[in-house]
Each structure stands twice: as C-alpha cells, then as structure tokens.
C-alpha cells in the first residue's frame, strides 16, 4: 500500500516534469496549419517538420546556432586552459591565500550577469570586441571559470597525492607524473566540467544579447525577435533550446550529484 502510494506520487511528479517537454516536442513537430487549430490535439495527428524547418530557415537562426556552438566550444577551451591549473593548485597545495582565493571565486559567482554585461558592452565597444563571438566567449568564460576551478579541484582531490608521489618515487618527473597518472584518472571529471561549461554558455541569454548586435548566439537571436515572431517560431525555438539539455543530463547523470555536491564547498 505504502509502495503503491509512493509510486503514485512519483508518477504524478514525473507527469508534471515530462508533460511540458512532450507538448513542446509535439508543437515543434506539428504543421503550421495544425498549430492554428483549436482545440490543439494532444496526440500527434499530422506529424510534420514544417514548423521546425521554417524556424531553421528564418534569418539568423542557423548563423545563431553556429555562433552558439563556436562560443560554447571556445568557452570550454578557454575556461579549462585557465581553470585547470588553478583547480590543481587548490586541490594540491595548502598555500597562503588559498582560503581568500576560494572566497573570491564564490563571490564572483554571486555577481549578476547583467551587472557585468552593460559596462562590458561599453568596454568592448572601445576595444573593438563588441558584436563578436569573442566578446561573448570572454563573458561566458568569466561566468564559467569559478565553477570550472571548483569542479576540477574536486576532481584532482579524488586522485590521491600518494599516487603522484609513487610515480615520482619510481622515476617519473612531476610533469610525467601529472600526464601519466593524474590526467587519465581526472579525464572523466574534466569532461564533465567541460560539458557543464558548454551548457551554461549555450543557455546564457542576457549577456549574449547585450554584447552583440549581428553576431547573435541562438538564444540571443530568439530573445531579440521574440516580440514580433509567430507562435510556431517560438515553439520551434523552445524545442531547439531544450534538446541539448536532454542530452546533457543523459550524459552527466552520474556526475550531477558530485558536481553540485562539491561546488557547495
């Protein structure tokens, strides 16, 4: 009886969580015509890619997708390049200033994006970076960096220092010990940090919208055309933005608890 009640609750919550995703998928794969019907059918009656292809062929959507991809990948590379060494330092050394440094990271995480974006737009205008994917990349890297440092630190902490010491006892240089012993073990965790960074960048709207005019990322493009675009366009846009999230969570399921568990420290 108790087990049954448990399942009822779980199924009810699952329906609440899944229904919107089902409906946006349904809407995205309905023809333009069937979206104008009322009442809307709750099961696919006339599956069509018309709405989705209409969205994709709208001005700026493909370009926005490409920009989003570029910004996301560049952000991942830059954030790891800067964040990985810092994460290693935090994990392995009890240096003076370690505590203040971690507080500094936490503090930057509390700064709203909007506070940075408006002045950054002005700064980028004078440096010629305004309206480029580089500008958005820099902003997104700054946003992702504290989390990257904290996640990679947690990853490196999980590889015991004794392993590195053992490698050195048996003749490895510090660099060899890092490359041969630490990196292979840290790789899955670092990949997790990379995916996390990518999704953060993919999802970020406000900063990207403020820092660009023509070189919009996909969400910025959707946002800026929101008020005058037809419903079908908005539904297809919603679907396009949701799909990576489904993939992301599927890949990252194993790491979610670790990630949010550790960033709390």
């Amino acid at each position: 009886m108790r087990r049954f009640a448990l399942q009822v609750f779980c199924v009810a919550i699952s329906l609440f969580m899944a229904a919107p995703i089902y409906l946006i998928t349904l809407a995205a794969f309905s023809s333009r015509e069937s979206l104008n019907e009322f009442p809307l059918p709750l099961v696919p009656t006339d599956p069509s890619t018309e709405t989705l292809s209409g969205f994709l062929s709208s001005t700026g959507v493909i370009a926005g997708g490409v920009n989003s991809l570029m910004v996301g990948l560049n952000t991942v590379v830059l954030a790891l390049l800067i964040g990985l060494p810092a994460g290693y330092a935090v994990a392995r050394y009890a240096f003076r200033g370690r505590q203040p440094y971690q507080l500094f990271l936490l503090l930057t995480r509390a700064l709203p994006i909007v506070v940075l974006s408006v002045p950054l737009a002005r700064i980028f205008l004078t440096t010629g970076l305004y309206d480029t994917t580089y500008a958005v990349t820099l902003l997104h890297t700054a946003l992702a960096l504290p989390t990257t440092v904290l996640i990679t630190a947690a990853v490196f902490v999980a590889v015991s220092p004794e392993q590195e010491e053992a490698a050195q006892i048996f003749g490895a240089s510090p660099v060899q010990a890092f490359v041969r012993i630490v990196m292979p073990q840290a790789l899955p965790g670092i990949a997790a940090a990379a995916v996390f960074t990518f999704v953060m960048s993919w999802n970020e709207v406000l900063g990207a919208a403020i820092l660009t005019l023509n070189q919009r990322t996909l969400p910025a493009q959707v946002l800026s055309t929101l008020s005058f675009s037809p419903l079908a366009y908005r539904f297809a846009g919603g679907f396009a933005l949701v799909v990576p999230a489904l993939l992301f969570i599927a890949i990252m399921r194993k790491y979610l608890l670790n990630m949010w568990g550790t960033t709390l420290k």
Binding site: A18, L23, N203, V222, F235, G238, V242, A245
Partner: peptide, 25 residues
C-alpha cells in the same frame, strides 16, 4: 525518476518560458 526530475537543470529560462508558452498561450 531522478533523471526526469533533473532534466530542467540544463534548460535555460528562455527555453522554459517558451515551453510553458505552448501550454498557457
């Protein structure tokens, strides 16, 4: 269940707004 319930973790607020627009419009 856990997978399903944490999916929105990776959904942006813009996307969430559009998803619910399909419901509430």
């Amino acid at each position: 269940y856990f997978y399903l319930w944490v999916v929105p973790l990776a959904i942006s607020d813009l996307a969430a707004g559009l998803v619910w627009l399909a419901v509430f419009t």
